Simulated scan of single mutants.
Amino acid sequence: MSLGYRMAYRIGLTPWEGAAQGGSEQLVGLLDREQDERGAPPGRAVDLGCGSGAHTVELARRGWDALGVDDVPRALERARSRPGADRARFVLGDVTRLDEAGVEPGVELFLDIGCFHGLDDAARTAYADGVTRLASPTATLLLLAFTRGRGPLPRGASADQVTGCLAGWELVDREAADVSGMPAPLRSTAPQFYRLRRRVAA
């Protein structure tokens, strides 16, 4: 999918950003809940496949030590030019090789708004290994994924695929995503927000 995203950012065709704006109220509520349960300061957060950085900047605004990771240079250029981007950090890197991107252990929150569901099986395994290895014992993974749709869409991921791949995590909540801002082809893909907590052996 990286080549497709590179081309999309080059020509300025990024419909997922409009979709994210449409669902912003729901995401605000999910982040509020996370912080209400944790208290302050919230800790370190990594925005996986951050794109042009809107969510990374929002995390930083909330007081998280926020890092956005993406492998599309043009997307990161846009991210670094956003108002408030000076509060966050952005790095060019692969979400399946987070160590190489400079992500250090002890991450309290991983945010994934539509990254995992576009990866192939091998990449999903590497992604899961990386976030599990770098997560703190109390970490949360907040992940938005939709099921397989038609046409030139990411491959999608079912609930079983999410939880099966992320075996080191416990699913603690799941809710349907707000589709009001999504293009018509995405509305039928049953997008879901998954909230997972790091599973630590007793």
Rank of each mutant, 00 (worst) to 15 (best):
R199C: 09
R61S: 11
E17H: 11
G181P: 00
A145K: 07
V179G: 03
V72I: 03
I113K: 15
R150S: 12
A157E: 03
G93Q: 04
V95S: 06
S2T: 15
D99V: 08
R38E: 00
R97W: 01
M7S: 14
P105I: 03
A85R: 00
S52P: 11
Y9P: 03
E175S: 13
E58G: 01
P185M: 10
R97G: 11
W169A: 13
Q26E: 04
G84Y: 01
C115S: 14
L119S: 06
R33E: 14
E17L: 10
G114Y: 05
Y127V: 07
P191T: 04
D173W: 10
C165G: 15
G114W: 02
D47W: 02
I11S: 07
V172N: 11
L186V: 02
G93Y: 06
E25L: 07
R187P: 01
V107S: 03
V200Y: 06
R133C: 11
G114A: 10
R148Y: 05
R61C: 02
R6M: 05
A202Q: 13
A85T: 08
D129M: 12
S52F: 07
R62W: 09
L166A: 13
S2L: 15
T140H: 09
L76S: 08
C115T: 15
A66I: 07
E170F: 04
R74G: 00
P154Q: 00
L143M: 08
A176K: 11
G102T: 02
G168H: 06
I113F: 11
G168Y: 06
R10D: 13
G181D: 08
G93A: 09
D94C: 07
E104F: 01
S81G: 15
V72N: 04
G29P: 09
L109I: 07
R6G: 08
D112W: 00
D160H: 14
